[in-house]
């Protein structure tokens, strides 16, 4: 397949670029480990004081931390840096370099979403998977196959939802150049480290329906530890499909607004 070959080329090119700065590996490793360490210690502190919070005990919250790390790692692997290089600070939209992207004989959304790879994200991915495995061990009883399947489906729709949100923010930059939507989002996304059920009801509504951050981590973690009721599972899937479709449409409208900024 042509596009698969392209993905491979993009990944290889990013890797070769990064090879020039080898000390970055250790810095990335340091940041990943620090992020993991603070996350784990925070949970240990919390569950040193209480057994469970609103039905979430230590293993379940640990599983949620694993999901958070995995989803963040997948975003950081490809569509995060790619969309950032297009719509971020000094991105292609602001500098006018998007001209060259538009001229290429490939779908622009594909190019904008998958061109820049950050292979260090594999460190975070590995750590996230390790946390998830630890959580499964801590649960103490075998997780049924049904839960695993429902978890995987929820994880796929979580990543798709996150991708759709990032695409929307990238598209909005065509209307509001220089506004750092992803920064605002990143701050709010911090809240996804804990289950939505922990937040007061007004915030829960915001985190579920307006900025569906909660769905991204709470649903997969719940699928793994408790199992999801079918309507919730299908609802999550439907929402992610709708969001990706809507975001792609918005992105196309946004592109048609682009008036180039080059001299």
């Amino acid at each position: 397949m042509h596009s698969l070959k392209l993905l491979q080329t993009f990944a290889r090119a990013s890797f070769q670029q990064e090879l020039a700065y080898r000390s970055n590996f250790f810095i990335s490793l340091f940041h990943s480990l620090l992020n993991l360490g603070t996350g784990l210690l925070a949970l240990l502190v919390l569950f040193g004081q209480v057994q469970s919070i609103r039905g979430w005990d230590f293993p379940a919250t640990l599983a949620l931390l694993g999901v958070y790390l995995i989803v963040s790692a997948l975003r950081g692997l490809v569509f995060g840096p790619s969309l950032e290089s297009m719509a971020g600070m000094d991105g292609e939209v602001l500098t006018g370099r998007l001209d060259y992207t538009l001229l290429r004989p490939v779908n622009t959304q594909f190019l904008a979403s998958f061109r820049v790879w950050n292979l260090y994200a594999f460190i975070d991915l590995a750590l996230g998977v390790a946390v998830l495995i630890l959580a499964v061990v801590k649960i103490g009883q075998a997780v049924p196959v049904g839960h695993w399947l429902s978890f995987l489906a929820a994880l796929v729709s979580a990543v798709a939802t996150l991708y759709a949100l990032m695409l929307v923010f990238a598209a909005l930059v065509f209307w509001f150049p220089g506004v750092l939507f992803t920064w605002i989002f990143n701050s709010i996304f911090q809240m996804a480290r804990y289950p939505v059920g922990l937040y007061p009801s007004w915030l829960r509504v915001v985190l579920t329906w307006i900025i569906p951050v909660g769905i991204i981590t709470t649903l997969p973690a719940q699928a793994l530890t408790l199992g999801l009721p079918l309507p919730l599972q299908l609802g999550g899937l439907a929402l992610s499909v709708a969001l990706v479709t809507g975001a792609s449409l918005l992105f196309r409208v946004a592109l048609s607004r682009y008036a180039s900024a080059s001299s």
Binding site: Q49, I53, R54, R193, Y194, L198
Partner: peptide, 16 residues
């Protein structure tokens, strides 16, 4: 961005 982490733990401990 800096006020979000304390806010998260406000809600977490409040619920706990």
């Amino acid at each position: 961005g800096w006020m979000v982490p304390p806010l998260v733990y406000l809600f977490v401990w409040h619920s706990a």
